[in-house]
Design a binder for these strands. Structure first.
Lengths: 93, 93
DNA sequence: GCTTCCATGATCAAGAATGATATTGTTCTG
DNA sequence: CAGAACAATATCATTCTTGATCATGGAAGC
């Protein structure tokens, strides 16, 4: 699934044009990115939650030289799926 | 940020009513959940990607009895943030 | 606004994933 | 279509995740 599929989903669900749907998707993405940039956690009941956590792993490796690299302390965005996703995710495969 | 904030973001970006915006958000969430339930990866350039991966960790623990629990092989939904989120995520804190 | 239900935190152990980097191929997006 | 972003890979050490359970804070429905 790509961004266009989400746009199509909105089109099917509503009666908006493709351009309008795309605008909505981008607005949501922008809102999400803005919230995550602000270190806010995003919590959607029944779906999942995004949390910005500090990276604690301070080691990397350059395979070309096999030397260790000190990883700058940054952040990670972690997504934890909610109850509904937990139910559907482990479906038969 | 909660679901309502996303709804508000749509309202601000567009001129839809709150009910309409909520309908859109739920439509997107449903589409996402449906795709993830189908083991499809969701990839949004510039934002991030969801991937359904098989759980490989086969051990858990019951803290009340301190006994190991064999974890049923299920699935996990992994989210990897894209370049744009990588840029904003490690912002000064 | 209130209530209900969901998510989180902590814990414990062991296995697994992450992180950086460069390259290549894929594919998403404008 | 063209361009850029993303996946995969190998590497190794460190951190983290997973599972269940209880309490609590918080989201969401009414």
């Amino acid at each position: 699934m790509i961004k266009n599929d989400i746009v199509l989903a909105i089109e099917k669900k509503t009666d908006f044009s493709a351009a309008k749907s795309l605008e909505i998707v981008e607005a949501i993405l922008k809102a999400l990115k803005d919230a995550l940039a602000d270190n806010s956690k995003v919590e959607i009941r029944g779906f999942g939650s995004f949390r910005v956590v500090a990276k604690k792993t301070g080691y990397g490796r350059d395979i070309r030289r096999q030397k260790q690299i000190h990883i700058t302390q940054g952040k990670r965005i972690k997504f934890r799926c909610g109850q509904e996703l937990k139910t559907i995710a482990p479906k038969s495969e």
